[in-house]
Design a protein around this nucleic acid. Sequence first.
DNA 1: AACTGTACCAACCGCAGAACG
DNA 2: GCGTTCTGCGGTTGGTACAGT
Length: 325
Amino acid sequence: MGRAPCCDKANVKKGPWSPEEDAKLKAYIEQHGTGGNWIALPQKIGLKRCGKSCRLRWLNYLRPNIKHGGFTEEEENIICSMYIAIGSRWSIIATQLPGRTDNDIKNYWNTRLKKKLMAKQRKEQAACHTGLLEQEMKREGSSFLVNHTLNQIPYWAEQPLAAPMMHPHRDAHLAGQDELTGLLMKVGGQLYNDPQLMNNVINYQYPTQDQLYVDSSDAVTTSGASVNTLNGNYNPWPNMEYDLNGANLNIHQGQGIIPVELEAYLNNLLRIDGSESHSGIDIGNSSTTSNSAGSTSWGDMGSLVDTPVSNFDAYQKGMLQKVAQ
DNA sequence: AACTGTACCAACCGCAGAACG
DNA sequence: GCGTTCTGCGGTTGGTACAGT
């Protein structure tokens, strides 16, 4: 037996709200509140609307202090950093952006931010591709074109951007966002080239809930908005910040939860230019990442994601709790 | 001017979990 | 403890405006 419908679908109006309907709903709620029962509310005020529809209209549009459109750079940064940390938990993200609704943030992410980041990723991949081709040509000389036809996609270009290496045990839904999170954590793929460092990262013990680092006084500034501040109450990676427009990711040593040696390594990677940063990549030969078929493992995150060797889950849970407070 | 494609956003839908009797 | 009802959430859809051809 299925669940009873929340309202009589046949006698319920759908589609855009008229100004009259808005006025009725707003006036009633401002005077009486919702009464804790959205289902009964439309009947009370003579609206042929589903209770859920009324609730949505109030929360996303009519309620006071709602901001529409025009997301600031700081808001973008907050959305991105929280997306990295907790995924598509829009209602939680909305709590960090006063005046913004989860629906608004979700729409903004899906229609603009995601595309913005994808475009940036494509640009970087193209630059990376060009750099590698040049190096291959230099190394192989005239034999290059024999070995590599121009329309042949090199093995590394077929690999998705790496999932964030610094959170190897994130939720599956986050692992599914490899491309975007990989872009944001753009040094991630490079970690795979250093088996020793990868080992350190995989075995790194994320801080427990009690060890969470949320002191906003440690926020650092850059040309772009710092994600470390996040209204002073949320700090997923306190020693890391990025500037979305400039795609600059800066790691600050000794300020937070990433081990100093890892920070140093990342800083080193980020200091060198784009073409150099990918030089010498030969993942297929890596004893830690190649498989029997000889393919690379940038996208093969399953074993890492599924293996419960760190307390990242607890870490993420802790962050969610901090945000909820 | 007409048509087409794209971007944006409001609203809907189904599900999970909380609340309640 | 169980079934029902309600709320809140996230994914998705559909309508509208606007730009490009």
